[in-house]
Design a protein around this nucleic acid. Structure first.
Length: 425
DNA sequence: TCTGGGGTCCTAGGACCC
DNA sequence: TCTGGGGTCCTAGGACCC
């Protein structure tokens, strides 16, 4: 029997997370902003109805937000990450074959059933997730991932489908493809959309009927896979294993532009330390590091973008070593007189911790250092980040984000835990 | 005043080798 | 007018995703 995929996607995930712990937000328009309270990255249904667009810079639509009484939140990734885990936990009760695709989406490989049973099963999943976590989800069911995405998309928009749509038979697939604009197809971004439309392909059905060699020529192999998937032939594998990352990056735009080297050094060493932490988490060591700096590219001030890469003699995941390399690179990059807006640290070319090649020139006691990192990681996981840190990371934090509307970390910080007043009526 | 952050995969073209 | 051919590896850049 052919496989059937269910794509479970949380509705307006970040906005829904904010609503779970704050009942006064029910039925209210809620939006969540990107880091530095920059642009809109999530909108509740009410906010969408109010005409708030995805990706819009908040300052540009300040008037609409105020006029329509939209509740605005700074991104609280600690909360969203934890809520995501809870949702995935519930899903894993239904099947071991769960591919966590992103913070708010998972593909489920569901066992062979008749179509009406599939829909009932999906309804049950949906109700359970809502009851156990407070997060509403939508489920799309089909024989390929790309089609499941399309089913999900349609189900999101239609009230009467009650959050579940299955497209298994030819007829329902064709109908679904017909009403799906080509830009809503998974794998078709801005560039490809413009190209396809300029050649008269406006919906998913037309795309599914396009000529193979023409697609391959212009949309490459990836585009051809998308087309095959639309035709019902699975080309994107189902993979429940969590792959180790091939690159780890920590970067931020600052809440205010910075001109002093010392402030950048605090930021770069903090990001480097965070990268090292992520690297140890997956038990890898990095052989290559890049640091980049940039000024605000939107402002009229002089622009400067630059990056430098270093090959490490011995692959490492040691924080102090990674920080010291990062600072060396920053010193090479820093030029006086610019207003820096963003810096970042990227680690790459990983090898497993256990397979690191030693160097005869290496005079570091790696065993002792590794024990130290273990202790630091333990303290971080039980007592919170930055309880212990390296002196160079500093305390001024002038680089910190602007987060003026941050909600409490209801589920990950003891002091933010929800309290309920039972004396009141 | 204010425009996110963190990833993946694929391809073309250059360097280099025999 | 001709200027080898075929292979691998690496890198930068472009497309996409959430």
């Amino acid at each position: 029997m052919e496989k059937v995929f269910a794509l479970v996607d949380c509705n307006s995930f970040y906005a829904s997370c904010e609503k779970v712990f704050n009942p006064t937000l029910e039925d209210k328009a809620v939006v969540v902003l990107s880091n530095n309270d920059g642009c809109i990255i999530a909108r509740s249904k009410e906010a969408k109805d109010a005409g708030v667009k995805m990706g819009e810079p908040a300052f540009k639509i300040k008037d609409i937000l105020e006029k329509k009484n939209v509740q605005v939140f700074s991104a609280n990734f600690a909360l969203y990450g934890d809520m995501s885990q809870r949702v995935m936990n519930v899903l894993s009760k239904f099947t071991p074959d769960l591919e966590i695709y992103s913070i708010d989406e998972a593909f489920l490989d569901i066992p062979g059933m008749k179509e009406n049973e599939l829909v009932l099963y999906a309804q049950k999943i949906r109700n359970t997730v809502l009851q156990w976590t407070g997060i509403p989800v939508t489920i799309g069911i089909a024989r390929t991932k790309t089609l499941a995405k399309i089913a999900n998309h349609i189900a999101k928009k239609s009230e009467k489908l009650k959050g579940v749509l299955s497209i298994i038979d030819e007829q329902s697939i064709e109908k679904a493809l017909q009403i799906t604009p080509v830009e809503d197809v998974w794998g078709v971004g801005q560039k490809y959309c413009a190209f396809l439309r300029s050649h008269g392909i406006t919906n998913a059905l037309e795309l599914s009927k396009a000529n193979d060699s023409w697609i391959k020529k212009h949309l490459r192999i990836v585009g051809l896979r998308t087309v095959e998937e639309l035709r019902g032939k699975p080309c994107i594998a189902f993979d429940i294993t969590v792959a180790d990352k091939q690159a780890i990056c920590t970067s931020r735009s600052f809440g205010q532009p910075l001109t002093d080297y010392a402030d950048l050094e605090e930021a770069v060493s903090t990001f480097a330390s965070r990268c090292a932490e992520k690297l140890r988490h997956q038990k890898s060591c990095a052989s290559v590091m890049t640091v980049f700096v940039m000024t605000n590219l939107f402002a009229k001030d002089p622009k400067y973008v630059n990056g430098k890469t270093v090959q490490l003699a011995v692959a490492t995941n040691n924080s102090s070593e990674i920080i010291s390399h990062a600072v060396t690179l920053l010193k090479l990059l820093f030029k006086k007189g610019y207003k820096y807006k963003k810096v970042g640290v990227i680690l790459a070319e990983f090898i497993p911790e256990s397979e690191v090649q030693q160097s005869i020139w290496d005079n570091m006691n790696r065993e002792k250092q590794s024990e130290l990192m273990g202790v630091i990681d333990k303290i971080t996981s039980t007592m919170g980040r930055d309880v212990v840190k390296f002196a160079i990371q500093g305390t001024k934090k002038r680089w910190k984000l602007r987060q003026e509307k941050l909600s409490p970390c209801y589920t990950t910080k003891w002091e933010d835990i929800l309290t309920i007043d039972i004396d009141k009526e």
